[in-house]
Each structure stands twice: as structure tokens, then as C-alpha cells.
């Protein structure tokens, strides 16, 4: 489903080159629920933005659902984002001027879907996240957990091949976070492929597989000494 090989992302200024990802390799199979963890600045978000075709990369290869995406133009990348990928953002990213129904409709309109089908999909996805009664509410009228459920409904409505979640519970309290996580688990059980970036080891533990990123590279948790250093530091901090 998602395969990156020797992928790199370099941010260049006049005086310095900074590698956000270096020789990055990952292979996510269809139907997997993968949690991507790592310390701040390790490259998790960069990985997610490249995986979601929100950014281009500097070198290597990236195959998404069998398509090599490195040479695609902006329109083609938009089309793939719209049809194959569902995004769940930490800050929900609902459009405040639109009500719940209209928010979920946004990606479906860009797909050129007919009104009747759009409505059916929106109501189905709202049912799925338990917010069918809130279709006419505006984001500001909903709790954080409800807003994230709407964002999930928006991601699901397009029947994406891949769900990308960026700290989906980062802005929620424990109870709401639990609800959202259970929803993601349900969605995964129904066959969805999910890649979730998170700081939270508890959330990561609930995923099918964990991928750890340090300094822009995927590391084997048991072998890489940097992982132990980072975790030791985290342990000290907690203590």
C-alpha cells in the first residue's frame, strides 16, 4: 500500500543542508495499522506529509497503492490525495465557516461526485462516527472530541485506501482520546489501512505495528542505541 525506499528529504538554505529524512525505508501493507513514533524533530511529521503527498521529497522512491508518485504533477497529486488518502489532523482542521455536513462534503465536491451520492456518503460516515444528529452544527458548537469525529467522518466519506492520522488525540483529553482511538480501531478492523503518527506510547501500543523514527531514519527498536538513549531520557523526565 505504502512503500518508501531510500527516500530522503532535504531542506536547503544558502549555507546549510538539513536532512529531515535520510535513507528512509518503510513498507506498509494493505489493512495494516501502523503507529509511527519518535522524538520531536525526528522526522515523523515530514514522513506523514510526504506520505500524504502534501510535500515532495528530494530523493528515493515512493509507491502509493502501486503508483510511483515522484514524477506526478500537482494536479495528479491532488487527485490521489482526494481519492486515495484520508487525513486526520491533530488540530481537526475543520472549516469554521461550514457546518458539519458541508465540511464533510468538501473533498467529495472536489471529486465531482453527484449530490445524491455525496449526501448518502456524508450521512453514512456521520452515522459511523455517531454524529448524524449534528450535521447542521458548526465546528464551534462541538466539543474537541466531536470535532475530531467529524474530521474522521470527512476522511472516511471518500472511502480512502489509506488513512493518515497526525497525532489524532493530541488535542483531546483522556476520555475523548480514548473514544477517538476506539473509533480508529473499529475502522481498522473493518479493513482500513491506517498510518498514525503519535508521541503517545500507549496509543502506539494499540496499533498493529510500531515504526520508530530517529534522526530521519526508521530504526529497529531493539538494536539501535539511539532508541535506548531517547527512552532513557524520557524515563528520566517522567521520574
Amino acid at each position: 500500500m505504502l512503500k518508501m525506499t531510500h527516500l530522503s528529504k532535504v531542506y536547503r538554505t544558502e549555507v546549510v543542508e538539513t536532512y529531515a529524512l535520510r535513507d528512509f525505508n518503510i513498507d506498509v501493507k494493505e489493512g495494516e495499522f501502523v503507529a509511527v513514533t519518535g522524538p520531536s524533530g525526528s522526522g515523523k511529521t515530514t514522513f506523514l506529509t510526504i506520505a500524504g503527498l502534501l510535500e515532495t521529497f528530494s530523493g528515493g522512491e515512493y509507491h502509493l497503492d502501486g503508483i510511483e508518485v515522484s514524477n506526478l504533477n500537482d494536479n495528479a497529486r491532488s487527485k490521489i490525495r482526494n481519492e486515495k488518502i484520508g487525513f486526520i489532523f491533530q488540530a481537526f482542521n475543520l472549516i469554521p465557516d461550514l457546518n458539519v455536513f458541508d465540511n464533510i462534503e468538501v473533498p467529495l465536491r472536489y471529486r465531482g461526485m453527484k449530490a445524491a451520492e455525496r449526501k448518502q456518503r456524508i450521512m453514512d460516515s456521520l452515522e459511523r462516527v455517531g454524529l448524524a444528529s449534528r450535521a447542521k452544527h458548526y465546528p464551534a458548537e462541538l466539543s474537541g472530541g466531536q470535532q475530531q469525529r467529524v474530521a474522521i467522518a470527512r476522511a472516511l466519506a471518500g472511502s480512502p485506501r489509506l488513512l493518515l492520522a497526525d497525532e489524532p488525540t493530541g488535542n483531546l483529553d483522556t476520555q475523548m482520546a480514548r473514544g477517538v482511538m476506539e473509533l480508529l480501531e473499529d475502522i481498522h478492523r473493518e479493513g482500513a489501512t491506517i498510518v498514525m503518527v503519535t508521541h503517545d506510547p500507549e496509543l502506539a501500543a494499540r496499533a498493529q505495528r510500531n515504526v520508530h523514527i530517529i534522526d530521519g531514519q526508521v530504526v529497529e527498536l531493539s538494536e539501535d542505541p539511539r532508541f535506548h538513549t531517547v527512552h532513557a531520557a524520557a524515563g528520566d523526565a517522567h521520574a
Partner: peptide
């Protein structure tokens, strides 16, 4: 600005 970015992320082309 951010809302436009969200629209782009959700599949809007530049022309949209």
C-alpha cells in the same frame, strides 16, 4: 491561509 491548505490537502487543485 490554513483553511486553503486544508482544502488543498483534501484534494483541491490550484485551479479549484
Amino acid at each position: 491561509h490554513r483553511q486553503i491548505g486544508v482544502r488543498r490537502a483534501l484534494g483541491a487543485r490550484k485551479i479549484d
